[in-house]
Nucleic acid binder design. Sequence first.
DNA 1: CGCCTGCTTGAGATCATTCAAATCGTGTGG
DNA 2: CCACACGATTTGAATGATCTCAAGCAGGCG
Lengths: 251, 251
Amino acid sequence: MATSNMSALSLFLDRLLRRSVLSAEEQGAILNLRSHAFQAEGRSDIVSPGQKVDHACLVVDGLVGRFDQMAADGRRQTTAFHLPGDMCDLHSVVAPVAGWGIEAIATSTVLHIPHRDLRALATSYPAIALAFWRDTTADASILGKWVSNVGRRNAPARTAHLVCEIGIRMEQAGLGERTRYTFAATQVQLADALGLTPVHVNRTLQALRADGLLRIEQRMVHVDDWDRLAVLAEFDPEYLLIEHLPEQRAA
Amino acid sequence: MATSNMSALSLFLDRLLRRSVLSAEEQGAILNLRSHAFQAEGRSDIVSPGQKVDHACLVVDGLVGRFDQMAADGRRQTTAFHLPGDMCDLHSVVAPVAGWGIEAIATSTVLHIPHRDLRALATSYPAIALAFWRDTTADASILGKWVSNVGRRNAPARTAHLVCEIGIRMEQAGLGERTRYTFAATQVQLADALGLTPVHVNRTLQALRADGLLRIEQRMVHVDDWDRLAVLAEFDPEYLLIEHLPEQRAA
DNA sequence: CGCCTGCTTGAGATCATTCAAATCGTGTGG
DNA sequence: CCACACGATTTGAATGATCTCAAGCAGGCG
């Protein structure tokens, strides 16, 4: 089990190493985590809202989203997209009762990793605890931008900002170029993420396409003019770049 | 310095202990943190966007907000309110370059605490590292709700939800009752938090008042009908209640 | 072919913004 | 005590953005 999932875990390790320094022993400990692979259909819930979980989910393949759901009429707000290599609810290690749900946007493969093991690792290796904390913080940083995106940008700028963000993250993760990457969300799912109506997302995408900024075809984003798109979005990628700490680099 | 700020630090310790179990030694280590008190005028920025900081800010008194600012026209989106006892940028310990800013909503007292010391504590005491991580996660949980609030609720429900959230948090922190607490934000600042226009906030508050749900008078929130307000807001306080972990309670 | 899902279109209603101005309260200086 | 300035709240009217509802279209698949 652990051996077959090694390469998937190394995706996660890569992500950690992008932000933190870990010793060979610490890296080995992460690669040897017990895990259990799991396949999820597109448009299915992996974790339902309010469910108590005893494992974290590492996205191996596909696209996964975190969402909050309104009790009254079931309308959803997606609060995060998770690409392969992301541990989509690492924070659940310290807060196992989720107020949110996790859904597979497209058909996806995820790895279940027991909280107990992750917590043991964090307790034994202070550097790993800090690395986990930093990883969670990176997600929180994205979440903060998501708030201002939904709260303060109109539909075209908001959509453009999301496309820019995912582009940079795909590129960082080595899964495509910022101007060309696969992104399997339907317009309905996009609407859930943008805090808009599917109809309005449709018209907005048409406008962006007509402006020569971007096209979404065959579940693939093509950015035709990155610079103008970034200007429209008021996109500054700084929030996606959490640097290594000086003393960590020195160590 | 440390002695005079002890009681302020104990506010923060209280907050940590609400979610995590810490030994006497660990508690002592937190109370003995070096710190430097600092007074901030209302409507002034404590940390400007993009500034690199080497200390975290513990709110002692007043009201503080985290915000994201648009480069083009300077309009702001507040992404979090921090009440006394909150360490408003604990995450900056692991991500010192902020994409956001911190502003004093009202005149406030904050304690500056060096990152170096907090990091040392997290490294020496695994339980403290986990406690810090959990504290950051609690803020992230609130942030997630903030996204769905701004993205999926109309102005009255959105405003109601914020009032409910702050009410519960004030109560948890022992700073008031959920139906009656001081809240020093002006309508302009409220608009920044709600992703609305000040004018629209004004009309929304009038509507809520006319419905007999709440009044804001003299910088004080009076909830006249909590139950109906919670229904309108579709408010479920679960996301604010991060429980102690079973193994922590046992230890 | 028939069905399903996702995408597209139209028209009207609703929500929220904009801009401009009036009002109110508080504190300050004359 | 009054005049004034300032920030905060309130109001009105017009505009614009987004939503709702309802229907039509296109492609993939059994």
